[in-house]
Structure formats: structure tokens, C-alpha cells
Design a protein around this nucleic acid. Sequence first.
DNA 1: CGCGCAATTGAGTCGACTCAACGTTGGTGG
DNA 2: CCACCAACGTTGAGTCGACTCAATTGCGCG
Lengths: 239, 239
Amino acid sequence: MIDPLLLNLEQHDVLTDEERDILRRIVVREKRFSAGEDLVVEGSRPGQSSLLVEGFAARYKLTAEGMRQITALHVAGDFVDLHAFLLKTMDHGVVALSPCRVGLSDHADLKIVTERYPHLTRMLWLDTLIHGSIHRAWIVAMGRRSKASHLAHILCELYVRLGVVRRTDSWSFHLPLSQSEMADVLGLSLVHMNRVIQTLRRESLISWNNQTITILDWERLKEVAEFDPTYLSLSAEPR
Amino acid sequence: MIDPLLLNLEQHDVLTDEERDILRRIVVREKRFSAGEDLVVEGSRPGQSSLLVEGFAARYKLTAEGMRQITALHVAGDFVDLHAFLLKTMDHGVVALSPCRVGLSDHADLKIVTERYPHLTRMLWLDTLIHGSIHRAWIVAMGRRSKASHLAHILCELYVRLGVVRRTDSWSFHLPLSQSEMADVLGLSLVHMNRVIQTLRRESLISWNNQTITILDWERLKEVAEFDPTYLSLSAEPR
DNA sequence: CGCGCAATTGAGTCGACTCAACGTTGGTGG
DNA sequence: CCACCAACGTTGAGTCGACTCAATTGCGCG
């Protein structure tokens, strides 16, 4: 169950056999969700954290007028609410964007990890820090890039993150988001989202059919996105 | 030197005398910066992390066309680049927005903390998680709120965060940002930033003179901002 | 076949941008 | 002491991006 998590963490530093073993023991109780279901409800105080084993999920907040903003996208190998271990109260919801398989980890066990396994603790901390980096990259894209560039950036990021957990197929990957859901990622209206997608298609940068993204020109897409993967901390080094 | 850090951390959980002592011992080497200087340079690999003791600082990224987006604002008591301890390479710069006093903490010492003081480690981890929460709140404000609401949200947040470290004076606080710097926070042009500020003034929600913000109507400002401080995790509880 | 959902297109409006100019203030040097 | 400059703030005018409302198309499934 923790295979994608290992692919994820070992991208940043080596893990010992013991550490892999501990992860295997603390991630238990598989749960399944169907698309649209909430993995975690805003305002709740979960006693465990959810490791996404398969599928796509999103963190989101709703505004008073009922608009939704997605603040993060999660793929296999992501600990979607590890931060709840210390934040305690969820300030946002987490929704399944596709059928999802999830492994649960009790906060009590995570606490034991922090008391006995400092390096593993740092690796989990790192995981939350990388999601913080991703937030910052999104803020820059939202504030200072064109919408086409913002979309390109998100697709570059997803391509790289999915590659780490072996969910890409040469230049394409499965992306089970509707245009309306993607609009909630970029903070756009559905109509305008559609038009932005079409500009990337018209430029032959991507194709997007049947929930499949194909990157037609990686170099130009990266250029449009100003994508620099440094923020994903993909190098393995002592942490 | 660590007083504002203690005010900050003790907002979230109690610290033991020993923990306070350790913080005092690992935060050393005071440094001063003048407004406009970089505390940390993008792309660098700092060997220590900076605790902001006094002043205002901002994390930022530059786009290819030279535009700047500020991704976080920091006040006294914030560990502005604690994440560099594990991320290693800075994916963004940190600039002083006013004269700043900073305390430095070696990463080697932080590593020792993670090996010997699990609760203190969790508190530092929590600090980075809260900054992640703030990032998410900003993403929502950027994506789904009007610019006036976004500005109101940032002012509410600053008022609360500055209150925690005792940097407010009844309903006002010192904010040494120019409108142009604030434009880099919201992702706006300078001209439009000015107009947005004027709408909040016209509504008698705030005044902003001589680098001083005064909140004239907290209830309505909160309402315009849809400000809910949950994301700042201000309750003290075992972590 | 026809319903329902997702994607697409058109038209009109409003928000945010740029370019440009002017006002205000504080600091500097002749 | 005053003239000047630089930085910040403010205002006006015209353009373009993103929105809403509305209608249409495409597709999968009962």
C-alpha cells in the first residue's frame, strides 16, 4: 500500500529498511472513496491522516457565495492531510476527484515516529514543506502569469509529480478533472477555462481528450509556464 | 532575542522551561538588514535559518519579465526560512521590507533538536504548517475573492498575527509597505492597487497613513474579507 | 431514443491593465 | 534657505482580459 509513498519520499533522500518497515506498519486500514466524496471534511478534527494510494484528490475551500477554490491537487503517494497531525482542525476539505484508495495512519502512531525516528520525522516534515513550496509556486502563477501560462505550469507540475510515482506513459498521463474542476484550480469561470485550454491546444502544446493529457511539446510548454522544478526538491540528499 | 518567537509558539501549545532554553541557545548571531536588502537569496543553500526578531520581511519570486510576486509576509517572531533546513535550496528570495533584526540558527543545531526534543520539533514543524495554511488562505483570496476582499483579508490576517506578538496598538498597527509592494502581494498593478485601497477607505473600513493601518470597523472588514482565523491555529492545545 | 453532463461558442459588460500626467512629501546640496 | 530631485501616491483615458448569460453540440448510458 505504501509503494507510491516510498517512490515519493525516496526521491528526496534514502530510507533505511527499518524506516520503510515503520511506514508499512503505521499506514493501515485501507479505505475507498468514489469521485466527489469528501475524504476529509472542513472543520473536522481527524485522528488519523490519509495517504492517497491511488487516484486524484483535491484540497478546497468554499467562499460564502458558494464558489470553490482548489488549493492543492494530490496524486498517488501524497499524504493529503498529514498537516492535520499538528494543525488539529481542518481548515479546508479534501475531495476525491476520481475513485480513490487511501491508507490511514493514526496520529498517535505519527507521534511515536516523531519521538523515536528523527530522520523519518524529517522526511515527513519535508513532505509537508514541499507542498508548501507548491503553494508558493501556485501563488506566483495566480498573481503574475497569464492564465494560459498558469495552466501550463500546473500541467508541467503534474507531469513531473506523476512521473515520480510512475503514473505517466511517455508524454501523457491520466487526468480525471473536468474543465469545471480545473476552473476551480485556476480560479476562473468555466467558460474562460475552456478558452484558455483551447489556446494551449491551438499552440499544439498539449492535447486533452478522454481524461488524458498529452504533452506535445515539452520544451515550449515549460517555456510558456516558466516551469523550473527546483521547488519540488527532487534531488536525493541527506535531510 | 527569541521573545517574539516564544509569543508565537506559545500561542499554539505550552513550552517547558527546557524548551525555551534550547531555543535561546540555538538562536544566535544577531544580524541587521536595511529595507530592500535580501535576507536570503533565491537559489542559495543557507546553512542556517533566520528568525525575524523585529521588522517586516517578504518571500518573493520574480518572473522572467521581471515582475515580482510576494508569496508571504513575515513579522516579528516568524522563522522566515525554517523550511530551508530540509528543502536545502531556496526556491525564492526573502527581502527586508523595513529595517530588520534577525537571529540565526544553524541547521546542525536544528537537526540536533529533531533528534532529542520531539515536542519542540513538532512545534517548529507546526510553525511551517501554519505558514502553509496561510498560503492556502492566500490562494483562495487570489482565486475567488474580489481584490478589495483580498486586501481586507490580508489586513485582517496581519492585524491578528501582529496582535499575537504584541505589535498592535488598539485598532492600528505599523505597516511599512508601499502601495507598490502591496501590489506585489495581491498580484496587481500599482495603479489598480491604489484604487482598491481607496474603495476600503471610501467604505470607512480602514485608514492607511504614514505606514499606519487603522481598522475603523473590524466587524465589517472581517465580513468583506470573509476572514475566519481558524487557519492560524491560534488555540493552545497539546501538539 | 432521449436524458444528463461536459464541452463549446457567441454576445455584451465590467474589472484590471497600460500609458501618461500631476500632486505631495522628504531629503540634499548650492 | 530655497531649489531641486526622487519616491510615493493619485487621477484620467483607452484597451483588453475575464466575467455572465444564453444557447448549442457531443457523448455515454439507461
